[in-house]
């Protein structure tokens, strides 16, 4: 085995790519959970986003339109979840699971004709001399725009939750929906918007998988990424900036194990492939101290 073949700069640059789909899905789910809704269907929305984005990108030839399609696909699926849990008051855990099973089937059906097709993909931005800088160049200034967009989105969500009035309302709805209702806020409206935002983000994350990270369509290609995003929200104790840490940590493990496989390390491939999932469990064990939003997962029914 030859560990010197692993270039740390390339490693860091590619771990950002590996982490982006999870970061996107996780930041959406964070908003949903801060509004007091537990949507376990992230995996289903991600894979639906992946296939919708892929189809749009292949048909139009534009990867950016693909991302729009991915976000729309994820958001549409999340509306289904929203209607069931918010208006028909179904159990959120069960509905989330149903959404995942449904999304996996739907995506397999939609993507039938697209297996093995090549899609247009995003090229990294070119910032001229900045991108050519040693070490920092490839890491900070030569990613594709979605990587930057995902970090901006985290910053935006952070500022929104912390400084904006609507962010305060959203948090109030998540902490105590009865009190928020008594104050005259529209609990269900706020939650529906949050759920759709979460769906769009999960869809974007899925689109990034099928359009940039892989870039191809295969059935079940998310391979648990949506669940890992859910785990990272818990790891981050519902705080946006810690999502970045969690997602990049996960991306690091995922990329490192691929590099080790390629370098021919004397550890069975299967053990290496397990490592991202084991790392997620480990992280959950170490950090399960954060306090969840007060009304998380509880159905709201204005019975007054």
């Amino acid at each position: 085995m030859d560990l010197s073949a692993i270039n740390p700069v390339v490693l860091v640059a590619s771990l950002m790519v590996a982490a982006t789909p999870i970061l996107l899905a996780a930041v959406g789910e964070l908003v949903v959970e801060r509004a007091g809704v537990l949507n376990l269907g992230v995996e289903g929305m991600m894979i639906t986003g992946a296939v919708c984005g892929f189809i749009v990108a292949v048909t139009t030839g534009s990867p950016l339109l693909g991302f729009v399609g991915a976000a729309l696909g994820g958001a549409l699926l999340s509306v289904l979840f929203g209607v069931l849990t918010q208006f028909l008051l179904s159990n959120q855990v069960a509905t989330g699971l149903a959404l995942t099973l449904f999304g996996l089937g739907l995506s397999a059906l939609l993507g039938q004709g697209y297996v093995g097709v090549k899609s247009p993909t995003l090229s990294p931005v070119d910032l001229g001399p900045l991108s050519d800088l040693p070490v920092v160049g490839p890491i900070l200034f030569a990613q594709d725009i979605i990587v930057y967009a995902s970090l901006l989105l985290v910053a935006g969500v952070w500022a929104f939750l912390k400084f904006s009035r609507f962010g305060l309302i959203l948090r109030a709805v998540g902490e105590n929906h009865d009190a928020a209702h008594a104050l005259g806020y529209h609990v269900i409206r706020v939650r529906m918007l949050a759920i759709m935002f979460g769906g769009a983000c999960a869809g974007l994350g899925g689109g990034y998988l099928s359009l940039v990270r892989v870039p191809q369509w295969t059935e079940g290609m998310t391979a648990g990424a949506g669940w890992i995003a859910l785990a990272i929200v818990v790891f981050a104790s519902w705080r946006p900036w810690r999502l970045v840490l969690g997602a990049y940590l996960f991306g690091g493990v995922a990329v490192l194990q691929l590099n080790l496989q390629a370098a021919g390390i004397k550890v069975p491939v299967e053990i290496l492939s397990m490592s991202p999932y084991l790392a997620t469990i480990l992280v959950l064990v170490i950090i399960s101290v954060g306090r969840a939003p007060g009304s998380l997962g509880k159905p709201f029914h204005a019975s007054g």
């Binding site: 289904l80 028909l88 159990n91 149903a98 449904f102 996996l104 089937g105 397999a108």
Partner: peptide, 21 residues
């Protein structure tokens, strides 16, 4: 397609959760 059956099964769970109201 086999995936249509998978979708069909997911749909069944959705309708059950919806009707359960």
């Amino acid at each position: 397609p086999a995936a249509a059956i998978q979708l069909f099964q997911g749909m069944l769970l959705f309708f059950l959760l919806a009707v359960d109201v």
